[in-house]
Structure formats: structure tokens, C-alpha cells
Design a protein around this nucleic acid. Structure first.
Lengths: 206, 206
DNA sequence: ATAATACTTGACCGATTTGGTCAACGGAGG
DNA sequence: CCTCCGTTGACCAAATCGGTCAAGTATTAT
């Protein structure tokens, strides 16, 4: 029955998808009512069941959509092809913001889904997560040019620090609700500049 | 009826409290079943109702407990009486870890409670939050000695950066479940040292 | 040993919610 | 007029929820 869903105008599709992410990210799988999703998407429950056989199918579709989109945008923004660490982080952030803008609750959904214990879905989640993880290289720092940093900098700590702060920032924004991409872009650029000034080898230095 | 609860051995009290934090932090107020809390605490639902008249009373008790504990430990660790920024952050982290160790899900509970919209409780939440916020001074940096930092450092950015990274770290730990205080203490000390090396005025400098 | 007291529970109730179905409505096109 | 097709409200059986209560089981007092 899912062809019916794909035949919908993109806007309506996204309304449904976002309603799903919102509800599933705030309640456990079992306690997320289809009626609430339908209502939030502006359609009747019956119609929702017309697009997806049952709750499980909707949930797993949403889950698949996460992996697909993430991979798509990370690739599109070429953030794993960079040798400049700051450029890589900037592109990664751009990709994440791009997704957050379209699907504000996808991030929370992913985390909740990962820890979902309901036997009806947990197996599928865990399996498909493996294939996603295979995409991300485990040692991101390997391809980075480390000669650009000032002497005496613990590169690993620096990277970890920046990652944590970025995540903390994203989380703070998400929590506050309204995702304002422009502000986020500005804030993050500011942070990047702060880091560059701090970590980059000064001009004229050795 | 709450005297009955306080008469319990501390261990049993904490089992109930933690069960409450866990369930309420993972579901909305309305969809958090008393039966699940009771079961997780290792007592029967009837007994839970023997300690707390109804769900609302339990919920608001848990909420109150958050504010009380937070204020208690922040005061006890004297983290707002410091002039050294790193010492202040260290003490703040210690206080938070102290709480996380005893009530691993309190943090998530607070956030969820703050955004709870159920009319049965949201009013009480918002009101009591105001009194808590009055405790935290709004300009933490005011009492900090800024002469200790290297020249050219944007102190505000630096502080924001450190705060975000700390929060990101705490969140990561929380998400991974098992809260290992020793490891957290070690990790955070490492981060602090990294920051000190980075931000503190070098010896002999002006 | 017995009675009074406190602790704890399973069974139960009425109200509500849930996933899912289905007959029917309404509009577009032939 | 008929026939699709997107859409819906009404409906159902099953499950769940907050809360109660009588009864069971320790514990203590006498």
C-alpha cells in the first residue's frame, strides 16, 4: 500500500513523516498512538492506515528514512572527503542542520529508536543499524592533515572537545524547540572561528 | 500518607524514586503507568498508592526532590563561591555527578517535566521552577577572576564552549546508560587539564 | 498463645484508549 | 448516470489505566 503514500505531494508526505517523528520520539513505540500521528499530520486515522498497513510498517519506514537521509546528506556535503578538520566539521554541521530543518525531530527519534526494546521492532532496528554504522569510518581523524595545528596540541582531545561542544549545542537547540537554521549557522561559524584562532598554527610559527 | 514513605529504609525509598524518574523520563506524564513504576521498584501497585495518594502527588514529589537535591549539592560543593573558573566547573561537575550516581534519570526527568503540558501538573511545574531559577545567579562569570586567562581569549566564548562540551559529555554518558562515576571523574579532569593548558596565561607572560 | 496493629497484595471496577476494519460519503472523469 | 478513488466517522474487541478494597501475612504487644 505504500505506493499510495509516495504518490502524495511531498508536502503532505513530510507532514506525516514529521508527525511520526514527533510522536515516536516522545513516547515509546507501544505508547505512540496512530491516532495522534494522524491528527498531527492533519489526516484521519483511517487514511493513515490506508498508507501504511500497520504501526510497525510506519515505524520501520521512518527508521529507514533516517539512515537513508543521513547517508545521503553526509555524502552530498562531502564531509568525509576533507583533509581540513574545520572544513569537515563545518560540512558535517551543515548536513545535520539541513536534516534538522526538514525533520526537526529525526534526531530524537533515532536515539529513542536505538534503545527501543519492543520485540516487535527492536530486532529490525539493531540489524539495520549495523549496516548504517558500516558507512561511517571509525577513524575520522586518519584522513586529516595534522600539520595545520599549533604545536603542543593534543589533537585527539581537541577533536573530542569540539565534537562534544557541537553535540551539546545541537542538543540545546533541539531542546528549545524552534530550529532556526540561520541562527545555528551563525553560532556554529562563530564557534569554528574561535577554535581556529585557538588551535591553528600561528602565522610565522616554525 | 507520605509519612509512611519517609519511614521506609532509604534504599527502598530510592528504589521507588528511581523507578519514578525512569518511567516519567521516558514517557509523558499521562502515559506513565503507576503499575510500571511499582513493578520496577519491586513493590505492588497497591503499595505504591499506599505511599502516595495518586499519580499527581508522586510526580510532584519527584519534581520537588529535583530542585531540593540540586540546590543542596550545588551549595554543599560551594561551586558558586569560586573565583577560579576551572575550580567552579570542577565542583559543579562533581555535584552533578554526585546526583547522577544516586538518581541516574533525574536529569532527563527534569527536562521532560519542564516541557510537560498536562494541565494537571504543568502549572505547578512552572511555578516551582521560577523559585529554583532565582537560586542560580544569572551571570555566573561576574565573580570569576579573568586575569588568569591568556591574552586575546574571548572569555564568554570560552565559557560557553566549556559548558557545551560538559553538557555534551554528560548527555553522552547518560545516553549510554551505565553511569560510571570514576570514569567520568577521570574524563572530566582530563578535559579540564586540556582547557587549562589552552586558556590559562602562560608562566612569565606579562 | 492470642489479639491488635501495621505492611502488603491480588482481584476487581469503570472509564478510557488502542490498533485496526469497514461501509459509506463525495468529488472527478467518462 | 456510473465508476473510481481519496477520505472519513462510526465501530469493535482487546488492552490499559488510576484507584479501591477486602483479605492475607508479618510483626508486635499483651
Amino acid at each position: 500500500m505504500k505506493e499510495k503514500f509516495f504518490a502524495l505531494p511531498k508536502q503532505k508526505q513530510n507532514a506525516i513523516i514529521n508527525a511520526g517523528y514527533r510522536v515516536f520520539s516522545q513516547n515509546s513505540y507501544k505508547k505512540s498512538p496512530m491516532s495522534e500521528i494522524a491528527g498531527e499530520a492533519g489526516i484521519s486515522k483511517s487514511l493513515l492506515f490506508h498508507y501504511f498497513h500497520n504501526k510497525q510498517e510506519l515505524y520501520l519506514f521512518l527508521w529507514d528514512n533516517c539512515a537513508k537521509l543521513t547517508i545521503k546528506y553526509l555524502t552530498e556535503y562531502k564531509c568525509y572527503e576533507q583533509t581540513d578538520l574545520f572544513e569537515m566539521m563545518y560540512r558535517g554541521m551543515k548536513a545535520k542542520m539541513r536534516i534538522m530543518n526538514q525533520y526537526p525531530n529525526m534526531g530524537s527519534f533515532v536515539i529513542k529508536a536505538f534503545y527501543e526494546r519492543d520485540p516487535e521492532i527492536s530486532l529490525a532496528i539493531q540489524n539495520s543499524y549495523k549496516s548504517y554504522k558500516a558507512f561511517k569510518s571509525d577513524n575520522i581523524l586518519a584522513s586529516i592533515d595534522t600539520t595545520q595545528f599549533a604545536e603542543g596540541i593534543d589533537v585527539k582531545m581537541m577533536y573530542r572537545e569540539m565534537t562534544l561542544a557541537s553535540e551539546g549545542y545541537l542538543w540545546e537547540m533541539q531542546r528549545k524547540g524552534a530550529v532556526d537554521v540561520e541562527k545555528m549557522e551563525k553560532d556554529f561559524t562563530e564557534m569554528l572561528n574561535f577554535w581556529k584562532k585557538l588551535y591553528l598554527r600561528k602565522e610565522g610559527e616554525k
